[in-house]
Design a protein around this nucleic acid. Structure first.
Lengths: 242, 242
DNA sequence: GTTGAATTTTAGGGATGGCTAAGGGTATAT
DNA sequence: ATATACCCTTAGCCATCCCTAAAATTCAAC
């Protein structure tokens, strides 16, 4: 197991008027961000900076340190890639994050838009022991309530055979598998349309022109989504488990 | 609510070979430590340093900052006292801590000697929202499994009418209310003697000479405790609730 | 009182991690 | 080929919080 130094600065109140930036990042946040960004090639300084809402210079500095720690391969002006060690560390964090989200949603009654921020903070303080006990408490779930797969203890990640709703064809009977974005507004819209993971729907129409997708829920209600949104909802054949 | 800047440095792995000191402290830790130490007068630099296992100079520095933050009254060489603001902040932290401990013990199957450390780390990352939802999930407990009272949301702390077992007299029928220390070895001993909070016992003998106390559990087994240990076990009349 | 031990404070430095400002590199368009 | 716009890095600084070493203060015992 890699031991990585990290650091968090927090407002002790956590609910107070957090005027200050949001200095909640750490090595782990970088790793997660890089992992999520680099599914196709290397992650750029700017990508990571935007995702973590910090300056590019801070990111550039951290990239050097990640390289020195053996967690990433990095060449100036060339972007960054995780090493195997970095990848495992990122997945460990991701496992924590998703287990915590599951707990917040299923046990503490958090709403979808509250969950991410709290989990983001909690995952920094939680030990591996806690993570595994929580997993047991939750019944070793394989997906979080978003539908995202929860990496295994050993860094295993189930391959994902889902596809965006935008690529569906009329008549298909599908089950919502996961929803991409975790930002509050989008989740609220999806929640309103009953497009949460697990829901079964039938595709009524996919318009090639503008990408509008019309679906019918099991309750008979139909909803129409814009193309961009349909790109963020991932589905699988309705026979599979949610 | 007071907004206090704080900071934690953590080993990202948390389970790795934490060779480095244990830089897990923060403003909140100081407040809690001072609160716990200053039940009789001001807390000294050394007291706090010992309790947090850090150097006196670090503590001295922090005392200045706590004063500047309006959380404590402090005069060099005179020790430190919390202001009302500091006291409320400390109690807020204490509430978090004890609710988290309760969750770890009751839900995640932590043992008594694992709980404290994990809670100590977690309480830094948890929001007030989380704290209150957790309280609800746990059924708004008034005491943690140690028997220590959990401060109210508003900083209320139930007066404590318990007394050390060492001050009991033979024949009294008592209920263990709380156990003072949270260190692993002591807790293990107490657990072995069935002296956990809630247990009912009858005092058989209190020897004035050496302070040895002999008690009989409800199961009929008798145990004898040394004076120092009997000072750390707090009891109340057996009629009251645990 | 003076001395000496213990405690406290100050001074100076390290690590993390964030920021701005300014300069270096790349890439695309003219 | 050069101009320009954007991206990236460096340099220098801030803040938190820790440490060691040395100086200051207190307190208690002669």
């Amino acid at each position: 197991m890699i031991s990585v130094g990290g650091s968090v600065s927090i407002g002790a109140t956590m609910d107070g008027p957090q005027t200050v930036k949001s200095p909640s990042s750490s090595v782990g946040d970088y790793l997660k961000a890089i992992w999520e960004l680099s599914e196709e090639g290397a992650a750029s300084t700017k990508d990571v900076a935007d995702r973590l809402s910090i300056s590019s210079s801070s990111v550039s500095n951290m990239f050097v340190r990640l390289r020195e720690m053996g967690l990433a391969e990095y060449e100036r002006y060339r972007g960054i890639t995780l090493t195997e060690a970095g990848r495992l560390e990122a997945l460990r964090l991701l496992r924590r994050h998703r287990l915590i989200e599951t707990f917040l949603l299923e046990c503490l009654g958090y709403s979808w838009d509250e969950v991410h921020e709290e989990a983001e903070r909690l995952e920094h303080s939680v030990s591996d022991v806690y993570t595994e006990r929580l997993a047991e408490f939750l019944g070793h779930p394989e997906h979080d309530p978003h539908g995202d797969p929860i990496p295994g203890k050993d860094g295993t990640l189930k391959p994902d055979d889902s596809f965006p709703l935008a690529e569906a064809t009329a008549g298909q009977r599908l089950r919502v598998f996961r929803v991409g974005p975790e930002d509050a507004p989008t989740l609220a819209v999806l929640e309103g349309s009953g497009l949460l993971p697990g829901k079964v729907l039938t595709v009524r129409e996919v318009r090639a022109l503008d990408g509008l997708v019309t679906v019918e829920g099991e309750d008979g209600k139909t909803h129409t989504l814009g193309g961009p949104l349909a790109d963020t909802v991932f589905v699988r054949s309705a026979s599979g488990g949610g």
